[in-house]
Amino acid sequence: MITNLNTQEAENYIKDAEKLKKSWFYRNSKLLKAAELYKKAGLIYKLSKKWMEAGDAYFRAATCYNKQNPIEAITLYIDSSNCYRDYSSSDAIYALNNAVELCKENGRFRKAAKHQIAIGEIYESNLNDIHSAIAAYETAIELLNNEMDETKQLECYEKIAIFYSELEQYEKTIDIFFKISKISEKLNKSWYSTNNYILNAGLCQLYQNLRDNVLPNKLMNILNICIRFNNDFKDSDEYRFLKNLIFSVEKKDPEYFVQILQDFDKRSPFDTWRLKLLLQIKQFINMKILC
């Protein structure tokens, strides 16, 4: 167990490091020694579960390494952010931003994108700031262009599409799902189903049309849009599911709607986002607001 004496030792390390930083003699070597002292203090604070103090110590160590050992500095900025994360989201993001900039300066774009995604996760989970989360993921996609990493870009696009749906900007959601269906088709990976992304776009279009009071007999046009985008879609289970779903909406038949969902869910279980969207669609049948 870490004692108060150990914490006092950490404070002494911090004081000694500050003295070294103020000395202009042998400036570079003094900075490296100061960084080591900050790291020692950070470890003690971390083991003592003094997370803000640990974050501060690791951050100071990182700034000492910034120019002389940027790779070590990046690691310490991440350590700092991890300590801050549950206690000060703004400090956690600031530390990660420093790591991103150093990664970019040193051509480590994949790492920069990884840390940019972590920033997006903090905005999403800790701050519920969807707009900033979208911006973070968009920046990650730009960074991944340097690495031609379309697999990771696809995952980022999918997050952005879901964010836009939460903001009820369904046109943007639809455009992105169609876009990532093309990326998925190009990647040709079994775990990225092109038809699933097209289905998501179709479901969003259905929900948008219902919100806009589009006449029920016009809803089947959604299928034509999906087929025009990818002709192979018409031979898929996802197409048949969407077609039957639209038919149940046209007929205002909630029982048939539920049966369709249950049958499809047995073959391809719904994730939370899709199930929520389907239940929102079902509300239009229950409320009988269709013409």
Score class of each variant (00 low, 15 high):
Lys33His: 09
Glu36Gly: 09
Lys22Thr: 09
Lys67Gly: 00
His115Gln: 11
Glu101Ala: 13
Asn97Gly: 15
Ala112Glu: 07
Ser23Pro: 00
Ser90His: 06
Ser88Lys: 08
Tyr58Ala: 10
Lys49His: 11
Asn98Asp: 07
Glu18Ser: 04
Ala136Glu: 07
Pro70Glu: 03
Val100His: 09
Ala73Pro: 04
Glu53Ile: 01
Gly107Leu: 03
Ile130Cys: 05
Ile119Lys: 07
Asn106Ser: 04
Tyr77Gly: 10
Ala54Gln: 06
Glu36Thr: 10
Ser81Leu: 06
Gln68Thr: 12
Lys33Thr: 07
Ser132Arg: 12
Cys83Lys: 06
Tyr94Asp: 15
Gly42Asn: 05
Ser125His: 07
Asp56Ser: 09
His115Trp: 14
Tyr77His: 14
Lys67Val: 10
Ala34Tyr: 05
Phe59Val: 00
Ala61Thr: 02
Leu31Arg: 14
Ala62Met: 08
Ile74Lys: 08
Tyr123Asp: 03
Leu37Lys: 15
Trp24Phe: 11
Tyr45Ala: 08
His115Glu: 13
Ser23Met: 07
Leu127Met: 15
Arg27Gly: 00
Glu121Tyr: 02
Leu32Tyr: 02
Leu47Lys: 15
Tyr77Arg: 03
Asn66Val: 03
Ala113Asn: 04
Glu124Gln: 13
Asp56Ile: 10
Ala95His: 06
Thr63Asn: 14
Lys49Ser: 13
Asn82Cys: 02
Lys49Cys: 01
Arg60Asn: 15
Ala118Phe: 07
Ile78Cys: 11
Ala95Glu: 08
Cys64Asn: 13
Lys46Gln: 14
Asp79Leu: 11
Leu102Ser: 14
Lys111Ile: 00
Lys50Asn: 14
Leu37Ser: 06
Ser29Asn: 12
Ile71Gly: 01
Glu53Lys: 14
Tyr26Gln: 11
Leu31Tyr: 15
Glu72Gly: 01
Cys103Met: 09
Ala62Trp: 05
Ala135Gln: 14
Glu36Lys: 15
Tyr87Ile: 02
Phe59Asp: 11
Lys50Cys: 01
Arg27Ile: 04
Lys40Pro: 00
Cys64Asp: 08
Arg60Met: 12
Asn128Gln: 12
His115Ser: 08
Lys114Tyr: 09
Ala133Ile: 04
Ile44Pro: 08
Lys30Pro: 04
Ala73Trp: 05
Asn128Thr: 09
Ala34His: 04
Lys40Glu: 13
Leu102Asn: 10
Ser90Leu: 10
Glu72Phe: 02
Glu101Trp: 02
Ser80Ile: 03
Ala35Arg: 07
Lys19Met: 07
Ser81Glu: 05
Ile134Glu: 09
Gly120Gln: 09
Leu32Asn: 10
Ala95Arg: 09
Ile130Leu: 15
Ser23Gly: 02
Tyr123Trp: 11
Tyr87Gln: 08
Phe59Cys: 05
Glu36Met: 03
Asn69Met: 08
Leu76Met: 13
Lys30Asp: 02
Tyr58Pro: 06
